[in-house]
Protein backbone atom coordinates (compact mmCIF):
# COMPACT_ATOMS: atom_id res chain seq x y z
CA UNK A 1 0.00 0.00 0.00
CA UNK A 2 1.13 3.55 -0.70
CA UNK A 3 -0.01 6.46 1.43
CA UNK A 4 -0.56 9.65 -0.57
CA UNK A 5 0.28 12.87 1.23
CA UNK A 6 -1.11 15.85 -0.56
CA UNK A 7 0.95 19.03 -0.44
CA UNK A 8 -1.41 21.97 0.25
CA UNK A 9 -1.81 24.43 -2.62
CA UNK A 10 -0.16 27.10 -0.47
CA UNK A 11 2.30 25.41 1.84
CA UNK A 12 3.38 27.62 4.73
CA UNK A 13 3.73 27.41 8.51
CA UNK A 14 -0.05 27.23 8.93
CA UNK A 15 -0.99 24.77 6.20
CA UNK A 16 2.00 22.68 7.26
CA UNK A 17 -0.23 21.11 9.96
CA UNK A 18 -2.41 19.74 7.17
CA UNK A 19 0.68 18.32 5.47
CA UNK A 20 1.87 16.75 8.76
CA UNK A 21 -1.56 15.19 9.35
CA UNK A 22 -1.19 13.25 6.10
CA UNK A 23 1.51 11.00 7.58
CA UNK A 24 -0.72 9.28 10.13
CA UNK A 25 2.11 7.56 12.04
CA UNK A 26 5.87 8.01 12.52
CA UNK A 27 7.86 6.31 11.30
CA UNK A 28 5.45 5.53 8.48
CA UNK A 29 4.86 1.86 7.80
CA UNK A 30 3.54 2.35 4.26
CA UNK A 31 5.39 3.62 1.23
CA UNK A 32 4.79 7.37 0.88
CA UNK A 33 3.88 9.45 -2.12
CA UNK A 34 4.19 13.19 -1.51
CA UNK A 35 1.95 14.71 -4.13
CA UNK A 36 2.98 18.29 -4.93
CA UNK A 37 1.33 18.45 -8.37
CA UNK A 38 -1.25 20.99 -7.22
CA UNK A 39 1.20 23.19 -5.32
CA UNK A 40 0.98 26.85 -6.29
CA UNK A 41 3.34 28.30 -3.71
CA UNK A 42 5.52 27.16 -0.84
CA UNK A 43 7.29 29.24 1.78
CA UNK A 44 10.85 28.33 2.84
CA UNK A 45 9.22 26.70 5.90
CA UNK A 46 7.12 24.51 3.62
CA UNK A 47 10.01 23.54 1.37
CA UNK A 48 12.39 22.57 4.14
CA UNK A 49 9.51 20.86 5.96
CA UNK A 50 9.07 18.54 2.98
CA UNK A 51 12.82 17.80 2.98
CA UNK A 52 12.63 17.11 6.71
CA UNK A 53 9.90 14.55 6.09
CA UNK A 54 12.07 12.83 3.49
CA UNK A 55 15.06 12.93 5.81
CA UNK A 56 13.07 11.45 8.72
CA UNK A 57 11.84 8.59 6.52
CA UNK A 58 15.40 7.91 5.34
CA UNK A 59 16.76 7.98 8.90
CA UNK A 60 14.03 5.55 9.98
CA UNK A 61 15.30 3.26 7.18
CA UNK A 62 11.90 3.13 5.54
CA UNK A 63 11.32 2.79 1.81
CA UNK A 64 12.39 5.82 -0.23
CA UNK A 65 9.28 8.00 -0.68
CA UNK A 66 8.04 9.31 -4.03
CA UNK A 67 7.52 12.98 -4.77
CA UNK A 68 5.55 14.23 -7.75
CA UNK A 69 6.74 17.66 -8.81
CA UNK A 70 4.36 20.62 -9.21
CA UNK A 71 2.50 20.90 -12.50
CA UNK A 72 2.99 24.65 -12.68
CA UNK A 73 6.14 25.57 -14.62
CA UNK A 74 6.54 28.76 -12.62
CA UNK A 75 6.40 26.88 -9.31
CA UNK A 76 8.78 24.22 -10.58
CA UNK A 77 11.26 26.85 -11.77
CA UNK A 78 11.15 28.58 -8.41
CA UNK A 79 11.60 25.37 -6.42
CA UNK A 80 14.53 24.47 -8.68
CA UNK A 81 16.06 27.90 -8.33
CA UNK A 82 16.10 27.78 -4.50
CA UNK A 83 17.75 24.36 -4.60
CA UNK A 84 14.79 22.32 -3.40
CA UNK A 85 14.91 19.65 -6.10
CA UNK A 86 18.68 19.24 -5.76
CA UNK A 87 18.26 18.14 -2.15
CA UNK A 88 14.91 16.41 -2.68
CA UNK A 89 16.50 14.13 -5.28
CA UNK A 90 18.66 12.64 -2.52
CA UNK A 91 15.67 11.87 -0.31
CA UNK A 92 12.78 11.19 -2.69
CA UNK A 93 12.24 9.40 -5.95
CA UNK A 94 11.17 12.38 -8.06
CA UNK A 95 8.41 12.01 -10.62
CA UNK A 96 7.87 14.67 -13.24
CA UNK A 97 10.18 16.90 -15.22
CA UNK A 98 12.46 18.98 -13.04
CA UNK A 99 13.86 22.14 -14.64
CA UNK A 100 17.49 23.08 -14.29
CA UNK A 101 18.18 25.62 -11.58
CA UNK A 102 19.05 28.97 -13.12
CA UNK A 103 19.73 32.32 -11.51
CA UNK A 104 17.94 35.24 -13.15
CA UNK A 105 19.37 38.40 -11.61
CA UNK A 106 18.63 39.90 -8.20
CA UNK A 107 16.16 37.88 -6.21
CA UNK A 108 14.24 37.95 -2.95
CA UNK A 109 15.93 34.75 -1.87
CA UNK A 110 18.46 35.60 0.80
CA UNK A 111 19.54 32.01 1.21
CA UNK A 112 18.71 28.97 -0.88
CA UNK A 113 17.55 25.80 0.82
CA UNK A 114 20.77 24.82 2.61
CA UNK A 115 21.65 21.80 4.74
CA UNK A 116 23.01 22.39 8.24
CA UNK A 117 25.17 19.48 9.31
CA UNK A 118 27.94 21.07 11.36
CA UNK A 119 28.95 24.36 12.95
CA UNK A 120 30.99 25.30 9.90
CA UNK A 121 27.76 25.29 7.87
CA UNK A 122 26.43 27.95 10.26
CA UNK A 123 29.49 30.10 9.50
CA UNK A 124 28.97 29.66 5.76
CA UNK A 125 25.28 30.54 6.01
CA UNK A 126 25.93 33.74 7.97
CA UNK A 127 28.71 34.80 5.60
CA UNK A 128 26.42 34.22 2.62
CA UNK A 129 23.34 35.95 4.04
CA UNK A 130 25.18 39.05 5.23
CA UNK A 131 26.02 40.06 1.68
CA UNK A 132 22.40 40.13 0.50
CA UNK A 133 20.80 41.08 3.81
CA UNK A 134 21.89 44.71 3.75
CA UNK A 135 20.53 45.20 0.25
CA UNK A 136 17.18 43.60 1.00
CA UNK A 137 16.49 44.35 4.68
CA UNK A 138 17.72 47.92 4.63
CA UNK A 139 17.27 48.79 0.97
CA UNK A 140 13.91 47.18 0.34
CA UNK A 141 12.26 46.53 3.68
CA UNK A 142 13.30 49.86 5.17
CA UNK A 143 14.80 48.37 8.34
CA UNK A 144 17.68 50.19 10.01
CA UNK A 145 21.13 49.21 8.79
CA UNK A 146 22.06 47.49 12.03
CA UNK A 147 18.94 45.30 11.78
CA UNK A 148 20.93 43.33 9.22
CA UNK A 149 23.41 42.22 11.86
CA UNK A 150 20.68 41.32 14.34
CA UNK A 151 18.93 39.33 11.64
CA UNK A 152 22.14 37.37 11.05
CA UNK A 153 22.52 36.83 14.80
CA UNK A 154 19.04 35.32 14.93
CA UNK A 155 19.85 33.15 11.92
CA UNK A 156 23.06 31.93 13.53
CA UNK A 157 21.39 31.03 16.83
CA UNK A 158 18.49 29.24 15.11
CA UNK A 159 20.88 27.16 12.98
CA UNK A 160 23.14 26.33 15.91
CA UNK A 161 20.17 24.76 17.69
CA UNK A 162 20.14 22.06 15.04
CA UNK A 163 23.79 21.17 15.52
CA UNK A 164 23.65 21.33 19.31
CA UNK A 165 20.29 19.75 20.08
CA UNK A 166 18.73 17.88 17.18
CA UNK A 167 21.05 14.90 17.09
CA UNK A 168 20.90 14.97 13.30
CA UNK A 169 21.23 17.45 10.48
CA UNK A 170 18.64 19.97 9.30
CA UNK A 171 17.79 22.68 6.80
CA UNK A 172 17.55 26.43 6.54
CA UNK A 173 16.06 28.83 4.00
CA UNK A 174 15.77 32.62 4.09
CA UNK A 175 13.54 34.65 1.84
CA UNK A 176 11.63 37.89 1.51
CA UNK A 177 8.04 37.70 0.32
CA UNK A 178 4.78 39.55 0.40
CA UNK A 179 2.59 38.88 3.41
CA UNK A 180 -0.42 40.74 2.10
CA UNK A 181 -3.21 38.64 3.59
CA UNK A 182 -2.04 38.65 7.18
CA UNK A 183 -0.03 41.87 7.28
CA UNK A 184 -0.27 43.85 4.06
CA UNK A 185 3.51 44.20 3.96
CA UNK A 186 6.59 42.32 2.85
CA UNK A 187 8.43 40.18 5.36
CA UNK A 188 11.84 38.57 5.70
CA UNK A 189 11.53 34.99 6.86
CA UNK A 190 14.09 32.63 8.36
CA UNK A 191 12.93 29.01 8.32
CA UNK A 192 14.89 26.28 10.07
CA UNK A 193 13.89 22.64 10.34
CA UNK A 194 15.42 19.39 11.51
CA UNK A 195 14.33 15.78 11.76
CA UNK A 196 15.91 15.27 15.17
CA UNK A 197 14.73 14.41 18.65
CA UNK A 198 12.55 17.49 19.14
CA UNK A 199 12.36 19.80 22.15
CA UNK A 200 10.52 17.38 24.46
CA UNK A 201 13.08 14.61 24.21
CA UNK A 202 15.99 17.04 24.20
CA UNK A 203 14.90 18.61 27.51
CA UNK A 204 13.22 15.61 29.15
CA UNK A 205 16.08 14.36 31.33
CA UNK A 206 16.80 17.77 32.83
CA UNK A 207 13.41 19.51 33.00
CA UNK A 208 10.45 17.07 32.81
CA UNK A 209 10.27 16.49 36.56
CA UNK A 210 9.68 20.17 37.25
CA UNK A 211 6.60 20.16 35.00
CA UNK A 212 5.11 16.91 36.34
CA UNK A 213 1.93 15.88 34.51
CA UNK A 214 2.09 18.98 32.33
CA UNK A 215 5.23 17.74 30.59
CA UNK A 216 4.80 17.35 26.85
CA UNK A 217 5.71 19.03 23.58
CA UNK A 218 3.96 22.29 24.52
CA UNK A 219 5.59 22.47 27.96
CA UNK A 220 9.01 21.73 26.45
CA UNK A 221 8.60 24.56 23.94
CA UNK A 222 7.47 26.88 26.73
CA UNK A 223 10.54 25.95 28.80
CA UNK A 224 12.90 26.64 25.90
CA UNK A 225 11.34 29.73 24.35
CA UNK A 226 9.73 31.49 27.31
CA UNK A 227 11.91 30.37 30.22
CA UNK A 228 15.15 30.08 28.24
CA UNK A 229 16.16 26.68 29.59
CA UNK A 230 18.56 24.34 27.84
CA UNK A 231 19.38 20.66 28.15
CA UNK A 232 22.88 21.67 29.21
CA UNK A 233 23.43 22.27 32.91
CA UNK A 234 25.81 25.12 32.03
CA UNK A 235 23.94 28.25 33.26
CA UNK A 236 25.17 30.23 30.28
CA UNK A 237 23.06 28.18 27.87
CA UNK A 238 19.61 29.08 26.58
CA UNK A 239 20.41 32.71 25.79
CA UNK A 240 20.03 32.36 22.04
CA UNK A 241 16.26 32.45 22.13
CA UNK A 242 16.35 35.30 24.67
CA UNK A 243 18.43 37.30 22.21
CA UNK A 244 16.18 36.48 19.30
CA UNK A 245 13.11 37.54 21.33
CA UNK A 246 14.70 40.90 22.10
CA UNK A 247 15.36 41.46 18.42
CA UNK A 248 11.83 40.45 17.44
CA UNK A 249 10.29 42.69 20.08
CA UNK A 250 12.05 45.69 18.57
CA UNK A 251 11.07 44.88 14.99
CA UNK A 252 7.55 43.62 15.76
CA UNK A 253 8.58 40.24 14.48
CA UNK A 254 7.23 36.80 15.17
CA UNK A 255 8.84 33.51 16.17
CA UNK A 256 7.00 30.25 15.91
CA UNK A 257 8.41 26.85 16.88
CA UNK A 258 6.72 23.57 16.07
CA UNK A 259 7.97 20.40 17.70
CA UNK A 260 6.23 17.06 17.96
CA UNK A 261 2.55 17.84 18.42
CA UNK A 262 2.73 21.48 19.52
CA UNK A 263 3.54 24.91 18.13
CA UNK A 264 4.43 27.84 20.35
CA UNK A 265 4.55 31.37 18.99
CA UNK A 266 5.35 34.81 20.25
CA UNK A 267 2.61 36.63 18.42
CA UNK A 268 2.94 40.31 17.45
CA UNK A 269 -0.09 42.58 17.21
CA UNK A 270 -0.35 42.22 13.42
CA UNK A 271 -0.93 38.46 13.56
CA UNK A 272 -3.93 36.52 14.87
CA UNK A 273 -2.11 33.24 15.54
CA UNK A 274 -2.68 31.48 18.88
CA UNK A 275 0.30 31.50 21.27
CA UNK A 276 0.12 27.72 21.80
CA UNK A 277 -1.36 25.21 19.38
CA UNK A 278 -1.41 21.78 21.00
CA UNK A 279 -2.57 18.32 19.94
CA UNK A 280 -1.40 18.85 16.37
CA UNK A 281 -0.46 15.97 14.11
CA UNK A 282 2.98 14.68 15.10
CA UNK A 283 5.90 15.72 12.95
CA UNK A 284 9.54 14.79 13.66
CA UNK A 285 12.16 17.20 14.99
CA UNK A 286 11.60 20.92 15.24
CA UNK A 287 10.56 23.63 12.79
CA UNK A 288 11.29 27.28 13.50
CA UNK A 289 10.05 30.32 11.63
CA UNK A 290 11.22 33.85 12.36
CA UNK A 291 9.29 36.59 10.56
CA UNK A 292 10.46 40.20 10.37
CA UNK A 293 8.02 42.65 8.75
CA UNK A 294 9.08 45.55 6.56
CA UNK A 295 9.05 48.97 8.12
CA UNK A 296 5.51 50.35 7.86
CA UNK A 297 6.53 53.01 5.37
CA UNK A 298 8.18 50.46 3.07
CA UNK A 299 5.17 48.37 2.13
Amino acid sequence: MTRVIEVPTHLDDHSFDQFAAGFDAWPPEEKLLVDARGAQWASPYGLIGMLTAGQAVAEARRERPLLTVPTSDEVKRYWARVGFFRHAAELFELHGRVPKASATGPSDVLLDVTPIRAMDDVHQVVEKVNEAALRILHGELGLERNATMRFSMALSEACQNIVEHAGTSGWVGVQVYSFRRRLGRRVAVIAVSDAGVGFRRSLESTHAKRFGDRWGDGAALEAALIQGVSRFRDPSRGQGFAGIKGFLDRWKGKISIRSGTARLSIVPAWDDDVPLADHLAFFPGAQVQITIPAHEESR
Partner: peptide
Protein backbone atom coordinates in the same frame (compact mmCIF):
# COMPACT_ATOMS: atom_id res chain seq x y z
CA UNK B 1 34.00 42.09 13.11
CA UNK B 2 30.55 42.03 11.54
CA UNK B 3 28.13 39.69 13.30
CA UNK B 4 28.75 38.80 16.94
CA UNK B 5 26.13 36.29 18.00
CA UNK B 6 25.08 35.54 21.58
CA UNK B 7 26.99 32.26 21.66
CA UNK B 8 30.25 33.99 20.80
CA UNK B 9 29.55 36.91 23.13
CA UNK B 10 29.08 34.34 25.88
CA UNK B 11 32.11 32.25 25.00
CA UNK B 12 34.51 35.12 24.45
CA UNK B 13 33.56 37.87 26.87
CA UNK B 14 31.50 36.27 29.66
CA UNK B 15 33.64 33.16 29.98
Amino acid sequence: IEVLDFSCAEEIVAK
